[in-house]
């Protein structure tokens, strides 16, 4: 986890955005390692596939389309630093009341989790509790998440779809079969 903090600091300081893209991939892999240490194998699996694979590719794609060097700002902004330090101090003060890491008596382990762990094998079947909670107990949530992904993909299509360029080339009969562009 200390490695993660160091990587994050380097990310904040770096100006070459290609290095930033690669380093954020490294950051994701470190996060995946941390998840495995914390017994969340499903989450680690997802983070490794998403963060190190797709996110890096998308980031590089954006850099090709925009620019890869960040502009150097002459003056160091001091106000954001103060805001960030104050917020961080307040948050750390807040953690003083938190249950300790790995504490089995923490409130989170006493509400619905015991029921999932004890009953899901008999009620739903799959030995992987994460799957049965994801798909069965919390089906509505997952439906919502899938809809969000669908909407995001549709949004990217609207923003950068091919037909927008066809419209920009002032070729009216090509855009007839596509919905109207906002641009």
């Amino acid at each position: 986890m200390v490695f993660m903090a160091v990587t994050a600091f380097t990310l904040a300081r770096l100006r070459n955005l290609f290095a930033v893209a690669m380093l954020s991939g490294v950051f994701s892999l470190l996060a995946a390692v941390v998840y495995v240490v914390m017994d969340a194998v499903d989450v680690a699996f997802t983070e490794a596939a998403v963060g190190a694979g797709i996110a890096t590719v998308l980031m590089l794609g954006t850099l090709v389309l925009t620019t890869d060097v960040e502009k150097v700002h002459p003056k160091k902004p001091i106000a954001p630093l103060i805001v960030v330090t104050l917020t961080g101090a307040v948050l750390i003060y807040g953690t003083l009341d938190m249950p300790h890491y790995g504490d089995p008596n923490a409130p989170i382990h006493h509400h619905v989790a015991p029921r999932y762990i004890e009953k899901s094998g008999a009620e739903v079947g799959p030995p992987n509790i994460v799957t049965s909670v994801l798909a069965s107990y919390r089906g509505y949530d997952t439906l919502g998440e899938v809809t969000v992904i669908f909407t995001a993909a549709a949004g990217v299509l609207v923003l950068l779809g091919r037909w927008r360029r066809a419209a920009a080339a002032s070729n009216p009969h090509k855009t007839d079969d596509e919905p109207e562009a906002r641009s």
């Binding site: 969340a40 509790i129 994460v130 909670v133 994801l134």
Partner: peptide, 12 residues
């Protein structure tokens, strides 16, 4: 398992 489910979907 509950936070795992929430974060799994949140990552994607």
């Amino acid at each position: 398992p509950l936070p795992h489910v929430l974060i799994l979907t949140a990552i994607v």
